[in-house]
Design a protein around this nucleic acid. Structure first.
Lengths: 236, 236
DNA sequence: CTCGGCTGGATCGTATACGATCATCGTATA
DNA sequence: TATACGATGATCGTATACGATCCAGCCGAG
């Protein structure tokens, strides 16, 4: 469901500011605009056949969400070249996603669990092709779908919003700092099942949170292990 | 220090958009603009003697930070009337502040600890006037100063930013949903000391995080206990 | 007296125009 | 050849103007 660019573009008479926002956002998360790409307001305006004012507004919003940086007489550039930045994003996501998953747990229904299991099954199936013929992009996509099911019921809209932003940043960053750690794939699938069982049997909130957080932290640790960019990075 | 509008108006040639942002932001967190206040772009522009375009941009930023809501042909209104909204904010703040405090712990220096203790001492002194002649606003202010010292060293800028936003929202909300729970004041001071000792002796990250989170959660629990707005609210 | 439609005002959304600032590139000189 | 300096272009920041949309109050009909 999250594959398309515009997400929900249902409104026919959306404001042009919104249009510009969704257009740029889509181009970033779809990978059409890689990190470091320059983005000139007037060009975007011309492309969308609108004025620069709404574009400017959209850029500001995206800046607030951390997807781009905006410099004074230089223009807007898609953020995320810095690997340290990537670590910060992962750490933050670990925090908020763990909380969202834990808060969602009581509201997760049978159908959700089944759907998540089905997705995880497909991830498991992909492991057969590991490591050759393995499609990390597809795997990452499924991974996102899996976790979506588990955190989307989060009753706290703030936390949920932070989770979405984190995933967006992460998606935008793929390509430059390529995050995926293939060695972790098999463990990931196992940990997913553990997480499902925890939720299934109504484990305490704190326990679910810890498990979800650990799951991501482990990935981050694996990433840190093979890079020496940031030796001692405290993982919550 | 927070009484003035501009807060830090050090930069002489700040953009007008920034000017508008700081002006509105200051009026909100200082309480001059209570929740529900309407804010008309053209009026603000006239007040600051600038055009509406930068004001509009500032409003969008503030909207992204959750301080105001912006409706199409109605205008901008300062957010935060809903008590449920308050709970969500507290819950989120509990999460991110706990993390920020834990991540800051290794970088907290002797001088910081002393400063925090000094602030907490002043809070302790205020308890003498409890419950009569007790100034909750002043107490809340000191509380913020205390925690600031403990989380400001957080190396992750994202998390730190979230903490700031949370506090801003909380500060903006005071007045309507009055959060302060007087009964908690003595315990608060004690818990602060516990937190200081944990950091002082270099306790593990997870332990510090838990303590910091518990500290806030307890306040939230106390708030929930005396209100029946939201019976079962899962506190992380 | 109440209800429905209509007119007027207010506010936002966007387009266009102009000025300010900075990066870039070419050129002259040591 | 390397470096400092100045002209040029590009881009952003803001002001102003106009159109679109919505809310409020009034007026007339039932």
């Amino acid at each position: 469901m999250s594959g398309q660019a515009g997400a929900m573009a249902a409104s026919p008479a959306a404001s042009k500011s919104q249009l510009a926002y969704e257009w740029i956002h889509g181009r970033i998360v779809s990978g059409a605009l890689g990190p470091g790409s320059r983005l000139v307001l007037s060009q975007v305006a011309a492309e969308l056949d609108i004025s620069v004012v709404p574009v400017r507004e959209a850029v500001r919003r995206l800046e607030a969400e951390g997807l781009i940086t905006f410099e004074k007489n230089v223009g807007a550039t898609v953020a995320g070249i810095d690997p340290v930045e990537y670590l910060y994003t992962m750490q933050t996501l670990s925090l908020v996603e763990g909380a969202a998953t834990a808060l969602s747990a009581p509201s997760v229904r049978r159908a959700d669990l089944d759907a998540a299991r089905e997705v995880n099954g497909r991830m498991h199936a992909m492991l057969a092709d590991f490591p050759e013929n393995f499609d990390p992009v597809r795997f990452t996509q499924l991974n996102h779908d899996f976790h979506s099911v588990l955190f989307e019921h989060c009753p706290n809209p703030h936390i949920l919003d932070l989770v979405h932003r984190g995933w967006n940043r992460l998606t935008a960053l793929r390509g430059s700092t390529f995050s995926f750690v293939p060695e972790r794939a098999p463990e990931s699938v196992e940990e997913h099942e553990v997480l499902l069982q925890l939720i299934e049997r109504g484990a305490p909130t704190a326990e679910v949170e810890l498990a979800a957080r650990r799951h991501r932290s482990a990935t981050l640790d694996a990433y840190l292990a093979r890079t020496d960019a940031h030796p001692a990075f405290p993982v919550l």
